Simulated assay, not measured.
Amino acid sequence: MTGIDAGQWADVAQRIGLGGAVTLILTIGLAIGLATRGPEFLKALNGFLETILAHRRESRRITEELERDRKRLEVEFEEKGIRRLEAPQDINP
């Protein structure tokens, strides 16, 4: 032996397989990370979720605003007797 003892990790890795050993080590690392940096992680996650939710709210608000504007213009055009012109379907751009 070279003097470096791997301990029981080699036996554990052999029993649960390489994928299981990698998953176990990553899980232990995540647990340690959450224990030491939990509040910062939660703040970052909250910021990420807030960004996504703000995007969805704004997207929905803009869509509704455009729909209201389209209906308002449609009514105004109808009152003024302006009709929508349709482009011929056989024109190739």
Results as ranks from 00 to 15, higher is better:
1 M>R: 09
3 G>I: 05
4 I>K: 09
5 D>V: 04
5 D>R: 00
6 A>L: 13
10 A>K: 01
10 A>L: 10
11 D>M: 03
17 G>P: 01
17 G>H: 02
17 G>N: 01
17 G>C: 08
18 L>H: 04
19 G>W: 05
19 G>P: 05
20 G>S: 01
20 G>R: 00
27 T>W: 06
28 I>M: 06
29 G>L: 06
30 L>Q: 10
31 A>I: 15
32 I>R: 03
32 I>Y: 02
32 I>N: 01
34 L>H: 04
35 A>M: 11
35 A>L: 08
40 E>K: 02
41 F>H: 01
42 L>F: 06
42 L>T: 09
42 L>Y: 04
43 K>A: 15
44 A>L: 06
45 L>Y: 06
48 F>M: 15
48 F>G: 11
48 F>I: 11
49 L>N: 12
49 L>R: 06
52 I>V: 14
53 L>S: 12
53 L>P: 03
54 A>T: 07
55 H>G: 15
56 R>H: 12
59 S>W: 05
61 R>W: 08
63 T>M: 01
64 E>G: 03
64 E>C: 04
64 E>Y: 00
65 E>A: 15
66 L>P: 01
66 L>S: 01
69 D>W: 00
71 K>Q: 13
71 K>E: 14
74 E>C: 10
75 V>I: 08
77 F>K: 08
78 E>C: 11
79 E>R: 11
80 K>Q: 15
80 K>R: 14
82 I>W: 14
84 R>F: 14
85 L>W: 02
85 L>V: 10
86 E>I: 05
87 A>K: 05
87 A>Y: 00
88 P>M: 09
89 Q>T: 13
89 Q>V: 09
89 Q>R: 02
92 N>M: 10
